[in-house]
Structure formats: C-alpha cells, structure tokens
Design a protein around this nucleic acid. Structure first.
Lengths: 335, 335
DNA sequence: ACGTTTTACGAAATCGCTTTCGAGTAAATT
DNA sequence: AATTTACTCGAAAGCGATTTCGTAAAACGT
C-alpha cells in the first residue's frame, strides 16, 4: 500500500504542491475555501505526512532520543519507573521516544547517532560505563538531560538525597538508635557519593561512629549486594541498632540476612531503604523508606527537555526533585 | 555545529556527490584508491550520514516501532523484562527502537504513525484498550509482531501456557492436593483465557471440582487483586489445599492474605505462581512458579520481526516459547 | 592498430515535503 | 480613474542522501 503524497493531492485537487502543503499547515495565505477542499481530499485519501521528509527539511524530528545504559536495563525498577513516566509525558506532548542503539564497530558514539537520527534532544540514563561517549553528548549542541549525573552535574535531574538521608538518620536517632550501619551503592557517581557523604556528615555531627564496608563501594543496589554487605558488616561489627541502605532492594537483602540469622525486624534491628518500590508494601514488615517521586521526575524531565528544545537552551541548573521519608513498619524505638 | 554532508566531502575531495556516496557505501564501481581518499576525508571531517535523508530515499529506517499500551506501563515487570531483552537484541542487530506515542486528536491511529515515521516493523504490546487501532496495524502491510495476542492470534509470540499450567496442577495433584484454587487474570485475552481453560480442563480430567471467583475475570495480575481474590475464595469456599495463580504478584497477594489469616505456607496451603519475577526468590517462602523465559521471548521476537522485515514476510505462525515449572519452597506434600 | 570489453566516474532524477519570493487578481484607498 | 494594498496561489530551490544510466578512458584481445 503506497503512501499518499502531497503530489497526489496536488494532482487531484488541481492545486500546486506548495499550496497543498500550506493548506495542510495552516498558512495564512490560503483562502478558506481552497483549504477546505484540500483538507477534504487529504482526509478522503487518508493522507499521512511523511515525517522523514518533514524532518529532513525542517531539521526537527519531534523525536527525543534516550541513551539507556544501565546494569540490568529495564529490570532496574528505578529506571523503568522513570522511563514510564517520561513515556507518558512525551505522549501527551507529542514527541516520540527512541532508544538509541549503538553498534558502530568503532566504539560507541551516541553523538553521531543523535545527529544521524536527527533527534531534537536526548535523555541520558547511563551509569558510568561509557563516559566519553556520554560526555561528548553532554557538551554538544544537542539539548541533553541526564539522570544520575556525573560530577560535572551538567544538565541533570535527580532526587534530593542529602537532606532526606539526614532526615532518615535523624528519625533513627530519635528512636534511640546509635549504632547505625550504612549500606552504600556506588560511591563513584554523583548521587551515590552524595548519599554517602550525607551519612558521614550526619554521624560526625552527632558524634557517632560510622559503620559501613569500605570495600563494597561500587555496587549496583541489588538484593544480593545488600545481603552480602549486611553479612560482612555483621561479621565485622556485630549486630547494629539500625540499618540505612541506599536502595530498597539492598535494605531487603540486609533484612533477609538478619532474618536468616534469627533476628527480628524491627524488634532487634530497625531498617530503612531508599526508592520506595512496590515491594516495600509487600514484604513483612513493610519497609520504611525514602520515596523518590518517579512520576514527578519523569514529568519534570520531559518538560525541562522540551523547554530546552523549544527555546534553544543548552545549559540548565540541576533540577532537583524532593524525596520524602515514608514511615512503615521496619523501624521501632530502641529497647 | 552544522553536520557535514556528502556535498562538502564532494567539494573537498573533488569527486562528485554520487561518487562520494558510492565510496561510502562500498559500491564496486569505485576504484580502491579514490575510495580510500574519500573515506579518509569523511573520517577527518567526522562525517555522519543523515539517517533521515537515507530513509527518505531508501524507504527503510532501521527503526522498529513499539506500540506499548499496558496497564501500569513499564511498571509491569513482565513487559519491562521483555522490552529489555528486545532492546538488547535490537542493539546487536543495529535497529533502533521507537515508542510510538499517539496523541492525534482524532483518536489513536498507530498505523498512520508508523507510516509517518517510516518504521520498518512494529511490536505490539497492548492489552485490549484500543483494539481497532491495533487491528488496523495487524492487517496492514507493515510487519507486525504482537505479544499477548488477541483471539485471531495473527503474528504473535507468547509463552506456552496450556501445558505448563497442567504440569503445575499435576505437580500439586501428586503432592496430594485436591482442592485447588485458581486465581485468574483476565480471561478475555488469548493468554489469560488459555490458562483458564487449561485449569478447567485439568480439573475435569481428574474429576476435581474447580474453585475460582467468576466475577474476578478481568484482572491485571496485581498483588491487590491476588489478595482480594484469595479473600473472596476463602470466604466462599473455605481453606483450599493449594492455590495456582496466573501471576506471581497474584500468588504473593494470595499468600499474604493466607498469612494474615494466620496460616502457614506451605504447611497449610501450597501455592504456585506464574512468571518468575525476582520477588519469588526474595519472599519467604520462596515461590514455586512457572517461569516465562523473557530473555528468549525478546530475542526470538526481535529475530522474527527482523526476519519478516528483511524477507518481506507478512504472516507467520504463532511463535511459542516454552515455559517451565520452577520448584522452590511454596509447595509441600499434603498432610 | 583497431574493435571490444572493463573500469571509474558524474549528471541528473528522485524521495516527499517546506518555504521564499514573485506575480496576478481583486479589493480598498484617495 | 489611478494607485495602493491585500489576498491567493505557484514556481522553484533546497533538505541530504541514493541510484540509474551514460560516457570517457583504460585495458584487453587478435
């Protein structure tokens, strides 16, 4: 089934291709009568503008790219949720979202790919792996918005972490806990590092001794890592009063280890996670955690990037989305 | 930063645009010497072919569309996993994946969108919502592969369900269970209905009375629905020997209800889920379930669709991926 | 040395659409 | 009645590639 083109509408209507195009695009120099005629024919013929041809001449594709390079990909609940929110928002705004695959033999080159596909802007969800490729993007003339930003913090959006970690720690402190373990994810990206520093700062301010496993400083926030970190921590420092983990999965991993050891949560140990994934409500006890507002992150991200695209802004201040302590059942006053 | 075009390479090299294009595309009627010269210049100038222009003339975009219309979107672990596998596979094969957003004021029209964006093929992950739009796609001349197919079963890929459900039931039967509850998802799509029929068939074959809640026949496979279904079932029919749920989340929902009631799993009731999400290994007891091979589904789906695209095949037999009972800790011999 | 085949390249058309600019006609102005 | 002004429309160039076809030069054969 061949596509109907403007030329054919032109033939049938008797108007020139330019006139047809203008009618279709609401130019003001087309009389209402002819516009209606042309619109009718276009409709009858089920005319569909060829977006490819359009972007060739307009240099605009109404398509936003996404560089998605994440351990476990979409299985990573956190990013899946954000992506879902982005997807919904872009749908509303009329943009398509395209995953930029990258199989150039000569190494990754996202920038090239973006140019080639003529995307209007790009989201970057990428932790660490291909720094240079991402940096090239970040410092190009294409609007870019990055999640989980690097130290440069250029054009990024993320959840507030520093204060919310402190809030959570204060909450534990007020419950009487003093020996508080921290289970970190990677401390080499911006976010992970910020959380880590927040913990250290807090402990210092309150004159407490920090407990964490230095060697495990490059984790991916998984259940197994949480389990393992808790095990090492336990063997090295004994039973803590409370645990603060940098992800829910890690928190649940830690909780599972403690349960396996025969301890009871929250009677023996209090635990707090980070993220607020669905699982928090499913497990026993329900996990107290710091909620990231995925919906809002995705929404603001989309709005911000589109704003950058439409107003040709190439540098923005970091967009920081508030996060919030959600109290459930995994913490308790110290006996 | 303007993009380098073939014209510029032409200017600099002294060769015509056609020659440059041919050199870049390994045409045989270009001498090795000039090819090298041109390639060098292209490289030095960081030439990037404009994919838009290319697809305009080639009528091929190396882009595969995806219609993604699912309750809870990517938060639906099942589809997120498949998508992840697809993504990885397409990356290898050099195709980009584009989410077809759809905000035409005059209702959804995926087909239009596909034509417009010139996608080479389309995946459809859509349960029920916009039937006609999806059907138009399915019966168009664009290669389409559908997950969770409709009754027509046209061009679809899915997990084997009928036999694996029976296998699971037989497993429960052999453990001595006779009063086996089924918690269904929707029975109005192909997959859901097949599972449901499998249950009924099995119970009939073994002369057992089926237990399920008829009214709950249009669920979305969620935790809450599982919890609720189990509650209703319990209130109506009392405690069962075993439960087979059509998703892991539902199974876990059911398990949670039973635990809340003070029962012990698997001592009092055996439970089997369907999907094999990560959670199965995390909860206590670990959930016995029927595993869908997401990896394989995504991989085969990609291969199949690409095959359809490259060999202009527009109709294929259903692709059925085996699934498999994974025995963990949630089932036990009846006392 | 002459005819024939190869080889290497370029001109030009094309893909489908947008946009500038000029021109013809009708309407408005003085 | 003459001159502006406003409306409509179309010709043509251009976006950045690909591809057909023709041709000049080189290579070959006898």
């Amino acid at each position: 089934m061949a596509m109907i083109t403007i030329q054919e509408i032109s033939k049938i209507s008797g108007y020139s291709p330019s006139t047809v195009s203008k009618a279709l695009n609401n130019y003001s120099d087309i009389s209402e009568k002819t516009r209606q005629k042309i619109l009718k024919i276009a409709k009858d013929l089920r005319y569909v503008p060829n977006a490819t041809a359009q972007s060739l001449v307009k240099k605009r594709s109404n398509t936003i790219g996404i560089v998605f390079e994440v351990e476990y990909g979409l299985n990573n609940l956190f990013f899946a949720k954000i992506l879902e929110s982005i997807r919904k928002q872009l749908e509303i705004q009329g943009y398509d979202l395209i995953f930029l695959s990258n199989n150039t033999n000569n190494g990754k080159d996202y920038l090239k790919h973006c140019y080639s596909k003529q995307v209007d802007g790009v989201f970057v969800i990428s932790i660490g792996q291909s720094k240079e490729a991402v940096n090239k993007l970040l410092f190009s003339d294409i609007p870019v918005l990055s999640f989980d930003p690097d130290v440069e913090m250029k054009n990024s959006i993320y959840s507030e972490s520093y204060n919310s970690i402190k809030t959570a720690l204060k909450y534990l402190y007020d419950l009487g806990h003093r020996k508080i373990v921290y289970i970190q994810g990677s401390i080499y990206n911006f976010i992970g590092n910020m959380r880590y520093r927040s913990y250290l700062d807090f402990m210092k301010e309150y004159g407490l001794k920090p407990y964490y496993i230095k060697e495990l400083d490059n984790a991916f926030y998984t259940f197994d890592e949480g389990y393992n970190a808790m095990r090492m921590n336990y063997e090295r420092f004994g039973l803590p009063d409370a645990v603060l983990a940098s992800s829910d999965l890690m928190a649940i991993g830690a909780m599972t280890f403690l349960k396996d050891k025969g301890y009871h949560i929250p009677d023996d140990v209090s635990i707090i996670g980070f993220d607020d994934i669905q699982l928090c409500e499913i497990i026993q006890p329900k996990l107290t955690t710091i909620r990231q507002d995925y919906e809002e992150i995705g929404k603001r991200a989309s709005q911000t990037l589109i704003d950058m695209i439409e107003n040709k802004i190439s540098n923005i201040d970091p967009v920081i989305i508030p996060s919030k302590l959600i109290v459930r059942e995994s913490c308790k006053q110290r006996k």
